[in-house]
Design a binder for these strands. Structure first.
Length: 177
DNA sequence: TAGGCCATCTGGTCCT
DNA sequence: AGGACCAGATGGCCTA
């Protein structure tokens, strides 16, 4: 695991500040990027435009650029939300210190195994019997067990626990190096 | 320097 | 129609 102490990236992008700034600066920047993009494409795939794309062609350049900037901003916000969700997930996975930030793939993998191990612990402790759930019709416990068995079959509880603790161990080891 | 991870842009498609 | 979602491309930063 790598320790990530990234500073602010110097990106050639339209960030929030730039977006809120005077439109001339924004437009210049956008035009520059669009030209750059055109060069990259080199007129590769000019065919198969959707109806939506054709409609958009009818728009003025100015409108198109504006719409592009707006959807870029929305996409940025969406990705920020996604990243916040990842961060929230990192924070509920135990034994991982904040300064050793898990990558996204590590976060997902660890979370998956954490859930599996918690499920197995619950089933181990209760033997599939959930007194608390019975007041509510008793469905929750049996559903949990049913789902767990469908996913993993029987007798894998300890395997999951072992897998999870091994993974935790390896992440913390790597991040300490 | 290569490779991993990430943010951002972009255009296509899906959904409301 | 317009926003959300997705995946590919690109380029920056960091570590081994």
């Amino acid at each position: 695991m790598k320790t990530k102490t990234k500073g602010k990236k110097q990106r050639l992008t339209v960030d929030k500040e730039a977006f809120s700034e005077e439109s001339t600066v924004r437009k210049k920047e956008l035009v520059k990027r669009l030209r750059c993009k055109e060069r990259r494409k080199g007129g590769s795939k000019e065919s198969s435009k959707s109806t939506a794309a054709r409609t958009k062609n009818a728009w003025s350049n100015k409108d198109r650029q504006l719409r592009r900037l707006e959807s870029n901003e929305r996409e940025r916000q969406r990705m920020h939300k996604l990243n916040n969700a990842f961060q929230a997930l990192r924070e509920v996975i135990p034994h991982v210190r904040a300064e050793n930030k898990l990558s996204k793939i590590e976060t997902l993998t660890l979370a998956k195994n954490y859930i599996k191990s918690l499920t197995s612990i619950i089933l181990n402790m209760s033997n599939g019997h959930f007194p608390a759930a019975e007041g509510m019709g008793g469905a929750s416990g049996s559903k949990l067990q049913q789902h767990y068995q469908q996913q993993h079959g029987d007798g894998k509880h300890e395997e999951h626990l072992k897998k999870y603790s091994t993974q935790i161990h390896s992440f913390t080891q790597n991040s300490c190096s």
